[in-house]
Structures are given as structure tokens and as C-alpha cells.
Write a protein that binds this DNA or RNA. Sequence first.
RNA 1: CGGGGAGUAGCGCAGUUGGCUAGCGCACAUGCUUUGGGAGCAUGGGGUCCCGAGUUCGAGCCUCGGCUCCCCGACCA
Length: 417
Amino acid sequence: MYWSKYFIPTLKDVPIGAEAISHQLSLRAGLVHMLTSGVYSYLPLGLKVLKKIEDIIRDEMQEAGATELFLPVLHPIELWKKTGRDQVLDEVMIKFKDNRGREMCLGPTHEEIITDLVGSFVKSYRQLPVCLYQIQTKFRDELRTRFGIVRACEFIMKDAYSFDRDVEGLKKNYDRMYQAYKNVFKRCGLDVAIIAADSGAMGGDVSHEFLVPAAIGEDTIYHCPSCQYYEGAGETQVEGRDCPSCKKGKLEKQVAIELGHIFQLGTKYSAAQEAFFIDEDGQQKPMIMGCYGIGVSRVIAAIIETNNDKKGIIWPECVSPFDIEIIPIAGGDKSAEINELADRFYQELTAKGFDVLVDDRDETAGFKFNDADLIGIPKRLIVGKKNLANGEVEIKCRRTSEIKLVKIEQAMEALVS
RNA sequence: CGGGGAGUAGCGCAGUUGGCUAGCGCACAUGCUUUGGGAGCAUGGGGUCCCGAGUUCGAGCCUCGGCUCCCCGACCA
């Protein structure tokens, strides 16, 4: 992709009001744009990152035995009245009447919808278990949005739901999801703290939260620096206790961003919505449910929050919007030669399956370097007059700032390795 | 929803005690010169000073009401 034909509106100045680093950088690097408080457009670069994260999630969901579907955003409020959650979630639900006078809402989550769907098709224990997921926009009328896309009114979530005939089945699905979540976050380059948590408005008994310790966040956790033990800030508020795990370190307070939450729901929804099946013994029983959420858009913020320096974002390779950025520095009489060489590298790398961005804009070297630092592509190939004289090009690593000068003929090999 | 801060060109800002035609930097347009860490010169375009009332000879500035955004808290599948 050529920068001049793409759309990456970078900003030199820090936007007013953006205090969190991830908020500043996601705006400055041209990943997202705010329409109104808590509502963001995903620009091409941000969308690419989003898709990369989604791909990782899809891969792990398949591994965990879940199948993708796509549920509606527009819900009749009737469905929510069956479980009473029209009241429980009243404050965050965006409700309105359509032109026919029906009471509708925009889905803040989808337990009721999936339970209605599965309940209408699954009638026998022979059809269980079922595990389904979607990646979908959720709407929550937040009174207070925060930190850009960390807490938005409209955001993207992966939500999975399991249906089993018994608790043993639920636990099996829960464990598979637990493992899938660990894999997803690891593959996104994130170190997560996993904490047994309250079920809140979701209901159910067992639940675990997946949090990323960061400079900002809405959750407080305690962690032990010597053994990496984590615990929630629930009942025990005493600070500076000895670590209950290794007994060596003292617990330290830490804020964190919640990225995932998984629940063993039981029969709360299936009973209220009469999602029954006939078991082997001929008895009619409510299905045993679990639900599993990841704040996909929030993952972007967490990655930026934990992968940046003063100059900009440092993408982990697995979620980077591009693999390699080529920067031709055209100058004077050598311009044609430089652009031609940059173009040749672009063709060859693309042919080998790399996703490459060429900054072909008519800008000075410093301008392009600063933008490159800002958008944070892991590898950079600089083709310029200075090194061309020696038959060399420069390869720079965004994360380590390490620079390698290599002969033109050896550049492909050096980039691919 | 409580507390605090902010709103002047696309972005970041200045604007004195209320006083003349509302400025600066960046960005943008045109031309020339440039090209290894956000280039230089010249010329040019761009304004509902958040909105609405009020005070005043006169309001970007003062008063009242409202809107929007951000931060802290409460809340948060």
C-alpha cells in the first residue's frame, strides 16, 4: 500500500482533552476519530489492527469449539422484560420507539437474544452442547466515557455463549474458553492478570476477569512483584500485605484495564426464557449456560497503553497494521533511482506475502521518520541517497531502534528474517 | 448523577482594564528553492470568538440561562 493512496491522517499536536497515552496516540496515529463523546470512527489503520485482533480471536474460538454467527443489534424490549434485565440495565440501555410504536433497544449485550435463538432450535440433549459467538457492536449509554475507546458508548465486543445439558459440560466449555482467552491475549502481546471476580449484573456463580495492568484503567488490582501473583481489590482492602502466594513480596496496588470476562451463568436466562431441552431421562430441563466476553476495541487501547514510547506506538508484530514500512527519501538527481528501488522492494515483499506500506509522500526525511515512529510499524526499510552511494539500504527496528546497514542484494533476506 | 476544568480558523494556542479592521504557529493553495529527524522564502484563502438573552455608546472579554468536551468520584456485562 502506498501512503499517498491510503488514508492515514496523523496529527502533530496532542488533541485537547486526551490525557491517556493510548487515547492520544490512537488519535494522533490516525487509528480512530471521535464523532461525539464515546463514539468513534475506525480509520483504515485502526480498522486493520481491529481485524488482526479479530482474526486471532476467531482462530482461538475455533480452537475452543465455538462457531461464529451474527446477532441483531436492534432488539424488541419484550425479550428483555422476560429476564427483568430491562430494569437491571435500564441506565445503560439505549431505548426508543420505532415508527410502528414498538419499544426497541440497541443491544448492550446479547444473552437474551442468543438464549431465545438457541431455545427455539435445541430441544434434545442430543443437540447439546452448543457454543456460539459473534463479534458485534454493543451500545451502552455511559454517563461517563473514559480514555477514548477504553470506555465508549459504542464499542466492539466478541461475545460467546455455551449451552450444556449439565454442569460438567459447562465446566468443560468454561475451561476451554479460559484457555482460549489466555492464548488470545498472549498472541496480542499482552500480559494479563486473571482474577476470580463478581458476576455483577450477569448473574451466575463462577467468573473470571482478564485484566491488563497499565498506567490507566478502571479497575484496581493487587499484585506481587516477586512472584506475579494477582488478586482483585474486592473484600480485602488492606494495602501492603505480604503476598499470600510466595510469602516473600508485598502486594502493590495497580490499576488495570479489563479486557475479558467469562461467566458460568447456570440457568438464569434459560429458565426465565424457557430455553428447555428433554434430557435422556425424559425430563424437561433448562440449558446450562456460560458466557464469555472480550472487549475487542478495548484490546487496541491496552496494546497501545503497554507498547509505546515518547515518539509513538510500538506495535507487536502480530497485530501491527503493516509488517514493514518502506521510506524512500527522494532527493535531487537520485530521486528516480530511489523511488524505483523502493518500488522494487515493495513488489518483492508483497509477493512474499508481507503487508507493506510505502511512504511515497513528497515530504522531508524527518517528517516521514516522525510519522513512522508515530504509527509504529515494527520494521522499517529506508532507501536514501546517503547509503545508496555504497549500494546499501537501512533497516531499522521500531522497538529497539537498532539500525542495520545492508547491501541492497541482502536486504530482502535481512527483512524476512 | 455529584465535584472540578475547558470551548476563539482544520489542529494547537494568545487576546491586557470592555475600545480601532480578532491575532500567532502548524496545516491548506500557488510559485521557486529544498530533501537523513516534523525545510526556507514569497504570495494567498480560511472566523456563527459554542449557542441564546441581558448590561453598555461599544462585548471574544462583564451578568444570567443553556449546550458540548475533558478530568476526579459514583456506576460499570
